[in-house]
Design a binder for these strands. Structure first.
Lengths: 339, 339
DNA sequence: TTGTACGCGTTATCAA
DNA sequence: TTGATAACGCGTACAA
């Protein structure tokens, strides 16, 4: 690795002090036009680039934001990452991307590492609401913003889809299509999943149906989870005990379920209607495209990054900013009206 | 942001010099058990974490690797990123992830920024072989490793799929199934795409067929590209002029093509066989699952990261390491034998 | 075994 | 308008 020219090299060559060089770089104090020109030409000549980390040490800012995601490959999260990355890049910030792999221990270690790394702020998709990472961030007074996480109690900033509403409108939609018995394939125990389930129940009750008449199984997060869970259900209860409508807590599991149903020669939506959640890109691709509840993933990333940068810039201690985005029902062709 | 305790705080509280504290942290020189214990307890007590950037300035290492990808959301790249990220994380390195968005100008700026940021090395998926970024990296003697890029001439280290072979075996396979007229939907002008096309031509010629009898169109990179290109072709030449076999340079376009064929009531594979390239997760999901050429994306990321770390650690100037991974034909059910 | 003091590359404060 | 020089937080020769 070649040693990069330093501010001192520039200063020597331009026959000025490093202070003066620093001034022309930061365009703050006045430097005579003559010397400015001379210094600038030397900078050009040496292809001098000020070192960010040296500057960081001096002004206590690294222009780096740590990002902790649960799984980058998952399109849901990678869309969020893209939104974050674009905003940061456009604002001259770096993104230090890390992966918690849905593991709380990793998550904790990563937040500590990022703090050691002196990031200017952190965007985190927390595994759960009472995650220790969140506590550490609060304790160290690190500026952070949470994504895909709703926790009004703790009073930290977050952005998330209104998943209670999402679960609700999805279920309502199925009921309106004439279904009275629905299989709900639930997600894990994180707040978004719990909210969706809550929304499901709310819609059921509100429509005069009974929760106990519905089939709630899970917990599914991936394509394989979806496959496994529905396969087990069929093995245990027989293919006929699957109701005519299935609502899953995420598109990935829905795709897995569809695959199994297809193998059993059940047609979608003629035999069984299926509704997903998330609206990942893949849901709309195939011949049977998945109706689903859309989450604004990219937008969540964008907003999280923008809000965090605002916090960093205006140091004012403002009240907690808690943002819920309304989900939207996307009707494709995996659900058919029963009426 | 709370001010974190420094090594000096620890030193004062433990009534030793900062040098001694530094020693127990880095476990190098000998420190008496007594003082070691005392210092460690103070560290614990203050929850002291050495600042990476201060250390970085001192030892000229940031334990940070810059990564320049073309598009993080694209599953092909996000798998690579995951491979890279995991290796780096396990080795105590950070990943500074950036997105060139297939734009050479961005790419150039990003490499300069990463250099300014004093990264210890860079992993780049270059947009093309004679990219200026590559020149800059060479010039500044930055340690780097390229992914998804083959360029024997310039003599830099890279890992890529042997795409010439991939294009070849895919085409061979279709020919073996009895197809003599194949539509090849090509990728862009980057080296991988050119190699695939070369492989396609090689197989055609080797089989006694003629390249001019085949239909080569493109350039496709995305799902929408695939849709658009096949739609335009149909509009221009009529649906009947589509040959019975299509080979696409990537799975995304294949999915787009499949979607259009489906809308025209053409069945896959009964009416038209289709072969993809990449083997992204989505290809195997649906009822008609895509036969394809597999690229080891995750593995490429892993290897690139490992090799780069080796270069960083053993400073020896070793010869260029140029790695080609053999692609594998994955047979699912989108191609049918004509015989 | 421990401490002093310098260097890493900047910014910022004060004098000149 | 410019220049010394002290931070910033850490590692490390060298001295003690």
């Amino acid at each position: 690795m070649k040693k990069l020219p330093t501010i001192e090299d520039v200063a020597k060559k331009a026959k000025v002090s490093i202070a003066t060089v620093s001034r022309v770089i930061n365009k703050k104090d006045k430097v005579s036009k003559k010397t400015t020109a001379r210094i600038e030409s030397v900078i050009e000549e040496l292809d001098y680039q000020p070192s960010f980390i040296a500057r960081g040490l001096s002004i206590r800012k690294t222009f780096t934001i740590g990002v902790i995601m649960e799984d980058v490959v998952n399109p849901f999260f990678s869309q969020i990452v893209k939104g974050i990355g674009e905003v940061l890049q456009n604002n001259g910030y770096f993104m230090l991307l890390t992966n918690s792999e849905f593991n709380s221990n990793n998550e904790k270690k990563l937040t500590q590492l990022l703090i050691k790394q002196n990031v200017d702020g952190i965007i985190i998709a927390p595994i759960n609401n009472d995650s220790e990472s969140l506590r550490i961030l609060k304790e160290n007074e690190v500026l952070f913003f949470a994504v895909n996480c709703r926790a009004d109690i703790n009073g930290f900033d977050y952005i998330s889809t209104d998943n209670l509403l999402g679960g609700y409108i999805g279920t309502k939609y199925l009921i309106e299509q004439g279904y009275e018995k629905i299989m709900y394939i639930r997600g894990t125990d994180d707040q978004p999943s719990l909210d969706k389930l809550e929304g499901f129940k709310k819609a059921i009750i509100e429509s005069g149906l009974k929760v106990k008449d519905q089939i709630i199984i899970g917990k599914a997060k991936t394509y394989d989870d979806g496959k496994r869970i529905i396969e087990n259900f069929i093995k245990k209860n027989g293919i006929k005990s699957i109701p005519e409508a299935i609502f899953t807590a995420n598109d990935h599991s829905a795709l897995g379920v569809m695959r199994v149903l297809n193998d059993f020669n059940l047609r979608i939506p003629q035999d069984i209607s299926i509704l997903g959640y998330d609206d990942i890109d893949e849901s709309g691709l195939m011949n049977i495209s998945l109706s689903t509840i859309r989450q604004e993933k990219y937008k969540m990333g964008e907003i999280a990054a923008n809000e965090l940068l605002m916090k960093i810039r205006n140091k004012e201690e403002n009240v907690a900013k808690q943002i819920l985005i309304k989900p939207v029902l996307v009707i494709r062709n995996s659900v058919i009206s029963k009426k």
